[in-house]
Design a protein around this nucleic acid. Sequence first.
RNA 1: UGGGGGAUCGUCUAGUGGUAGGACGACGGGUUCUGGCCCCGUUAGCGAGGGUUCGAGUCCUUCUCCCCCAGCCA
Length: 556
Amino acid sequence: MQANSSEKQGQGNFIHDIIDQDMASGKYGGRVHTRFPPEPNGYLHIGHAKSICLNFGTALKYGGKCNLRFDDTNPTKEDVEYVESIKEDVRWLGFDWEDREFYASDYYEQLYECAIKLIEKGKAYVCDLSAEEIREYRGTLTEPGRPSPYRNRSVEENLDLFRRMRAGEFPDGSRTLRAKIDMASPNINMRDPVIYRISRAHHHRTGDKWCIYPMYDFAHPISDSIERITHSICTLEFEDHRPLYDWFLDELGAYHPQQIEFARLNLTYTVMSKRKLLELVKNGYVSGWDDPRMPTISGLRRRGYTPEAIRNFCERIGVAKANSTVDIALLEHCLREDLNLRAPRAMAVLRPLKVVIDNYPEGQVEWFDAEINPEKPELGTRKIPFAKVIYVEQDDYSEDPPKGWFRLAPGKEVRLKYAYYITCREVVKNDAGQVVELHCTYDPASRGGWTEDGRKVRGTLHWVSAAHAIPAEVRLYDKLFTVENPDEGDFRANLNPDSLQILPDALLEPGLKEAKPGDCFQFLRQGYFCMDPDSTPDRPVFNRTVGLKDSFKGGK
RNA sequence: UGGGGGAUCGUCUAGUGGUAGGACGACGGGUUCUGGCCCCGUUAGCGAGGGUUCGAGUCCUUCUCCCCCAGCCA
């Protein structure tokens, strides 16, 4: 499966406007080449999906290319585990980087040469200041910085020192290579930024070959340039790094892509920072990066989201420069829209209530036809067994029903989907006064679920045959946080204690025996569910992906 | 209080001097063997004040509010 440009195009956005102009002016010879540049230091989340869809989607739209490039310049935080998960997630989302899987670490030698060139031009110097001293010299937002005492070393000395930094002659953190720009710049990023640091960290790809590593601000523009990127799309916080991006490329006289910034995605009831997501995992608030409550791509996948739903969501939210927080209801809408068309229907009773149909012949079993998906009649039907003892949903019976109640209640007649009309005749309670069993009668003339007398039966219930049902565990998920913006204050205090509810005694229609982990279904009148990898042959586990919309406003 | 950005229905987003539109949400109705889907309708917005213009969300101006930046993180 591959995302393609025929997918419903939303309205344009300001980035495409810029590209249109560039195409018209021939700025890059009619070429569009983007890149998705994750740092392999965590799992991808829905916010990254926005960037992935933007970068790959833009390339697709203009018949260009999009590279996958790992921005791996900080070995202390990165790991192959993350590289693998990122590749899996991008692929799953439906995008193909073909043979263009790149790493900033592939360019370490070239980056080093660029640094040498800068030094030779007198535009970079080796600085012996400590981290704390550099901070002091940098000044503040309102006060200019002061030049480092090492700022005017000779080119020869800088060359010598930098080569010896690479050779490992100096301890970690003892020296840095800094760009020589302007310590009085109102833009703090231009106050002689560090471009190389000494760190004897083991790199997941280059091993121990290097003990100096380039900084993002230096590696990124050069990596973009090497890959002949045309439009380097990144998030808003890099806006005031752009002068630096441009400075490096100009000083190096290198091919010069243009950086364009857009607003990252925020979602209501969700935290999106890697740090917070990591904390949820590390502290056991969730079961892992792929916990179905997580906004990670792997979590959404396990929850039962589809790539199509996510892509469509990313298309609909648009791309702009204003900070915004998208209502999670829009994501859920896109999900239901997709699942409604693709999910086979099934009947499952989550909280079973036993029903005995007194006038139905003992031992008789009838197999009824049920639609696989009413949205796609061409898919045909499946068979479901009906018998004297069935289970219905506890919520579908009320002893004292509110106004407008269509479901079961004493003396009320309802339709069992695809089967018969039944009327509630008798209620059995336990010592605690709880309803444990219903006795009903059925109307043989309603076979298949309707009668010729035009009788109006508003309520239609899902059900399973007691003798044929498959026991299962169902996991109901709710929002992970109780407030729209969990980032206000301590996000851990906003965790929803009821975000996971386990239903151990659910019963499924027998056809679900064939289901495999990852398969998704619509459980009639309940929602969309997908089989979890925790399932075993004798105990299937289903995750509720998202509930159905419910417009019943039962009130007394 | 330096610099860089940003403000359009509740939310997201179009609009590039000529009737402020769409989507989600909410509300109401139709349809229905899923209180789903689908269909119809209602709701509701240009941050504020000046100015230019026949005409301003759009141009000018003053102001207000919000976000980002002082990692040897990205």
